[in-house]
Design a protein around this nucleic acid. Structure first.
Lengths: 269, 269
DNA sequence: CGTGCCAGGTGCCTT
DNA sequence: AAGGCACTTGGCACG
């Protein structure tokens, strides 16, 4: 392989001198590479709120999309961060410290990281085209209900997903076996009071025009006082887990595929 | 410094052979050190939901508290993760791949990371006792209001913070200048409908006993249709930003300190 | 841009 | 454990 075309996924600097760091960091940022800096730093955040973090040894990850995370020794969450869209400024201060400033113009927030010692810098040139798929989300439950309306009840015919309302969304909307409108609110976790109120808003709006409008919450379980609340508001509940939905969806897909292949068989006859 | 007492904050392995990795990772995990693995991997998550991530070059951070984050080239958030409390299993599979399994027994969730190439391993022994302080949170606003009740209105006397109710919480509770109960709900961002309903729940419960009960939302601004909603529910709004609260709190502290020093002066007389 | 809502939300707190 | 709620929530989709 030619050295011109060769790519190094990682380039490592061990205990670089502070004053050398901008020479490493600046080109990497302008080349839109990710950077990992491990060292002794302090952090000041200022924006929607403000925070200070005293000196300590941490890991800082700067990505090409302009996002930053500062990780401490423990904790799944970063202690400080900046979502994508930052502009960076790296410099050596008069006092000799390395300073990395990440400013997000859109929300006028700034993250100020000062290093008094750097143990390691890694320049990352990662190639990652791997697809990511998430299953059993609320989105999947909705898909399943639209594909297999009998999951709700026999005779249900969904007519609309994500019906936009002045007051918000409706997950699924349709007609029951008697032709009465049925508004469905899906939750993939236990139903909270809040979700019931949400549904109640839509339903009461529609009942002004038609008192026969039904409202139903679909979820794996009910939260604390929600059963009584549902009764009071004349709303219904149907237990359904994300897993059941996923299984029903897969089953439906298989039968649809087999029906499709049958049709092909028939047409080829 | 003696080599026995010397600490190396970072130990680096460059392009380790896959089969060597468990020898590096296992002792580090049992010594409760953090680990950084950069390489070509695929990830399967299974738990509350499930997900798959195809092959690609990523950064994996494993911490001593049993948390894991998998970061791609872009994005502030990890593509896969595991909150603290994981048990780890690292091994070379029959097919020669390196496998790191992070299982969280408490929620029966598992993260399965397979590497077909490792560019870099960094063992991290970070010392970090730096304090972290966050300012201008909703908590600070509450503190400010309790310290300077006139921020709400003249004559307000708070009697309770975080009053526990069957229906939830009350941020601040007190009596206005006329002795009428005043329930205060604090928001540090724009008020949403949801927050108004939350307050309405508390207030309507209390108005059953005393129709003079007042409810007030404190926030920097009002969301879309919340003004009308507040009027309908006979609730009040007082504009107050986290910044204003913080300034009032700091001012109050200064005057309190100066009053204190005066007292000391007086007592020493 | 704000408005609304989901998220494998997480974390913190209290019964 | 479950309930309630804030969070620099972030993210997406839409008017």
């Amino acid at each position: 392989m030619n050295s011109l075309t060769e790519r190094s996924p990682v380039s490592v600097w061990n205990f670089p001198k502070l004053e050398k760091c901008p020479e490493i960091l600046k080109p990497a940022i302008s080349r839109r590479l990710a950077l990992l800096i491990i060292g002794d730093c302090s952090v000041v955040y200022s924006g929607r709120a403000s925070s200070t973090l005293d000196w300590g040894e941490r890991l800082v990850l700067v990505k090409s999309d302009g996002s930053v995370v500062v990780h401490r020794r423990e904790g799944y969450e970063p202690v400080n961060w900046q979502p994508p869209g930052c502009i960076f400024d790296t410099s050596i201060q008069p006092d000799g410290l390395l300073r990395i400033r990440a400013i997000r113009p859109s929300s006028r927030e700034s993250l100020d990281i000062r290093f008094r010692g750097v143990f390691l810098i890694v320049e990352l040139n990662l190639i990652d085209r791997g697809g990511f798929l998430l299953y059993a989300s609320e989105e999947d439950m909705k898909r399943a209900i639209v594909a297999c309306p009998s999951l709700i009840e026999d005779g249900f015919r969904p007519t609309m997903e994500e019906k936009r309302q002045p007051s918000g969304f409706i997950d699924v909307f349709g007609l029951d076996r008697n032709g009465n409108p049925l508004i469905v609110e899906i939750k993939k976790g236990p139903v909270r009071r809040e979700a019931v109120f949400q549904l109640a808003r839509y339903v009461s709006k529609m009942r002004e025009g038609n008192p026969e409008v039904r409202g139903m919450v679909i979820a794996p379980s009910l939260g604390k006082g929600t059963m009584k609340l549902l009764e009071t508001l004349k709303l219904e509940f149907r237990q359904l887990s994300p897993k059941t939905c996923l299984e029903a969806l897969q089953k439906e897909r298989r039968t649809r595929e087999s029906a499709l292949s049958h049709r092909f068989d028939a047409s080829s006859d």
